[in-house]
Nucleic acid binder design. Structure first.
Length: 209
DNA sequence: GATTTCAGGCCCGTTACCTCA
DNA sequence: ACTGAGGTAACGGGCCTGAAA
């Protein structure tokens, strides 16, 4: 797909079955871009080959609806979508020149190419946000489970020695959970399993053992 | 140099159209 | 045949930025 030798962007070569642009671009792609009568029912093959209804969007003027807003929806062909997608992979934004060349090559208006890229960026961002959301959900789940385990462990420790949780501290040096005993000496409890899962400080007032 | 104006581009939310189950 | 959901092209408005006055 060497559209213009001067453009690094359009030096991109794409091998697409049934798509072979000649150096004199536009005429070679007549098979994929067709202007149809808007009143005809668009034919959609099983492979979802999209058909361009109108390359130049305009207010409908022959259906008695010129006063109202009735868009003519452009349907991109598979090849057009593919090329736009490849361009997007190369660069998420286009320079004016790239946009112009791409528009000419695809027989679309620059505005249409621009809109496609805007929508594509939006879809990309949405997908990213969804992925991030999924990740945070999983993280929340695992933290909840971790919290449950820690609660359980605290309960076990309490059962082992009936002391208030407020006197449990973790030594920052050896990372062992300690119980500040009433007589002043620190008794070290078994907190190894707990610490292996989390470096959580049970009490905010950590002391060295 | 600072301010204002304007054009162009992008993002965002929304609408309208289209297909499919 | 009808309908609702989902995908996406297109629109309009707001914001930002750089250039010109």
């Amino acid at each position: 797909m060497a559209v213009s030798p001067n453009s690094s962007f359009l030096e991109l070569t794409i091998a697409i079955p049934s798509f072979s642009p000649s150096p004199s671009l536009p005429s070679s792609s007549d098979h994929m871009v067709r202007d149809l009568d808007i009143n005809q029912t668009p034919k959609m093959g099983k492979d979802r080959e999209w058909i361009m209804i109108s390359a130049t969007p305009h207010v409908n003027d022959d259906d008695g609806n010129s006063g109202g807003r009735r868009r003519k929806k452009l349907r991109l062909t598979k090849d057009q979508s593919h090329i736009l997608e490849e361009s997007f992979i190369q660069n998420h934004t286009l320079t004016h020149k790239q946009k112009q060349e791409l528009a000419t090559f695809l027989k679309l208006s620059q505005r249409q190419v621009e809109v496609w890229f805007q929508n594509r960026r939006a879809r990309s961002k949405l997908k990213h946000t969804e992925m991030e959301c999924e990740y945070l959900k999983r993280l929340f789940g695992s933290l909840k489970e971790q919290n449950r385990q820690l609660q359980k462990e605290v309960e076990e420790l309490r059962a082992l020695k009936p002391v208030s949780a407020s006197v449990l501290t973790m030594c920052p040096r050896c990372e062992r959970v300690t119980v500040a005993a009433d007589n002043g000496s620190n008794a070290v409890e078994e907190g190894t399993a707990l610490r292996s899962q989390s470096r959580m400080t049970i009490s905010s007032s950590s002391t060295l053992c």
